[in-house]
Amino acid sequence: MAGLIIKDLINLKRYGKILGVLIAIYAIMSFINKDVSMFNGFFTVVLAMITISSYSFDEAAKWDSYALSMPVDRKDIVRGKYCLLLIITLIGLGISLLFTVSINLYTGSNSLLKDFEFSIIGGLGLLFLYSIIIPFITRFGVEKARIIIIIVLMLPMAIGYLIKNSFNNEIIIPEIILEISELFLQYKSIIVSIGIVLALSISYNISVKIYQKKQF
């Protein structure tokens, strides 16, 4: 499986130069504005694109059928993609942490934790998003899954917008929901972490099941 992940990382290395330039531009802008949110926000979007690209490269080269003729089983290929996602997220968070520390040192601000929390939320959000879309990519391929990815991205926003507009601030939230929300906020780190691990493991198992039946 290590070979599969290295293959993906080498494939994505081609993005390196373009990414380096974009990161530099956003970093400079963030330094000028003394605000990390722009950089971290951009970074999250870049990370989101990268993992999808690894699927596009594989599809273009018809890599999977070739890989399956090697000493690699179907589970390895799916596992490799989930590992790649985690590696990219960790690399992203590492770069984001470095940048956040630098900008805090530069501005003398003391908002390191708060700023980095923003990146972590972005990273976790990405993991959750991918845990929904990877099974679709596995089943339909990147091209066909694109529309589903857009729906997955837009749906929460659309629902939120609809709720907001329908109730128009006249919403009366029941006591119990407020209590649950408070409890959630109190233990948010644990709940979110368990939620992400659960989402990823369910997603992985679904993807493996889909991939076992896939024909090439």
């Binding site: 490269f57 080269a61 018809k62």
Partner: peptide, 9 residues
């Protein structure tokens, strides 16, 4: 394979 399936990059 016919057409080569190696990663293009």
């Amino acid at each position: 394979f016919d057409g080569n399936h190696l990663p293009e990059n």
